[in-house]
């Protein structure tokens, strides 16, 4: 197989296996440089290595690509355990992130309470929260956080799937699970109460926020899917890889 064809074939095989564009570019560069070294050593040794001998050194491009992608997948927990990572973890991520947010809010809120001089006066603080000016802002904050949490988590899982060269279907699985979770997970803020729960709502009671939370993960997953497809195509026409 001529060298130019070897690199092209390797590029296609890496792309087919979902190798991230940056990693694939590096592999192709190093392989091309290695082949150049082999050729130079042969020339210095008085041998004339034909291009069709090059593949002998590296073996089948498909096998080489598989080896690279396997090594990449095995280098991260996400790649070694995709079912747990993309089938289970998304369901746990939302409550956990909310827990962190509540802790951060309590710390930040505690600091604010002290700064505003409420001290330990919970009654005065309750009145302040129910204030018609303050409450809508708190409600908006909770609603924004509810949507942001699920979108950030989806983004996180899409990035992990891309980094570990996993099949795009794992990314899609996480996106669909998070969309379903978005339909059921609710953060409710009412005067004097805040609750987080799964509520299996009927179609009549599904509000705009539920649809936003279901559409958000699907939209993010779709964007990452399109982006990875575009990166694959860009890799195939990249001009700065020796070929």
């Amino acid at each position: 197989m001529p060298e130019v064809h070897f690199i092209t074939e390797l590029r296609q095989q890496l792309t087919r296996r979902g190798c991230p564009a940056a990693v694939a570019k590096r592999i192709l560069c190093e392989t091309a440089e290695h082949l150049e070294d082999v050729r130079e050593a042969a020339r210095l040794g008085g041998r004339n290595e034909a291009d069709d001998q090059m593949a002998v050194y590296f073996g089948d491009p498909a096998m080489l690509a598989e080896r690279h992608v396997t090594a990449l997948r095995h280098s991260a927990w996400w790649g070694r355990h995709p079912l747990a990572a993309f089938g289970l973890l998304p369901m746990l991520a939302t409550p956990v992130l909310w827990l962190f947010l509540i802790c951060a809010f309590c710390l930040g809120g505690g600091w604010l309470v002290l700064q505003l001089g409420y001290g330990g006066n919970s009654e005065a603080m309750g009145h302040a929260c129910d204030n018609p000016v303050v409450f809508p802002w708190l409600w908006l904050g909770v609603r924004t956080a509810d949507l942001a949490v699920i979108i950030l988590i989806t983004q996180f899982f899409c990035i992990q799937a891309g980094r570990t060269a996993l099949d795009r279907r794992w990314m899609l699985l996480a996106g669909v699970l998070l969309a379903l979770q978005g339909l059921a997970w609710v953060a409710i803020l009412q005067p004097h109460s805040f609750s987080l729960c799964y509520a299996f709502v009927s179609s009549r009671s599904v509000g705009l926020l539920h649809w936003e939370k279901a559409a958000g993960p699907l939209l993010v997953t779709g964007l990452y899917w399109a982006r990875s497809r575009w990166a694959d195509k860009a890799l195939c026409v990249m001009s700065d890889i020796p070929a």
């Binding site: 990693v23 592999i27 190093e30 392989t31 290695h34 073996g59 080896r67 690279h68 090594a71 280098s75």
Partner: peptide, 16 residues
């Protein structure tokens, strides 16, 4: 050492 094997190994060692 197989020529093709070295880079996956090096990339793994770098990741670690």
């Amino acid at each position: 050492f197989g020529e093709g094997c070295i880079y996956p190994y090096l990339h793994y060692l770098e990741a670690e």
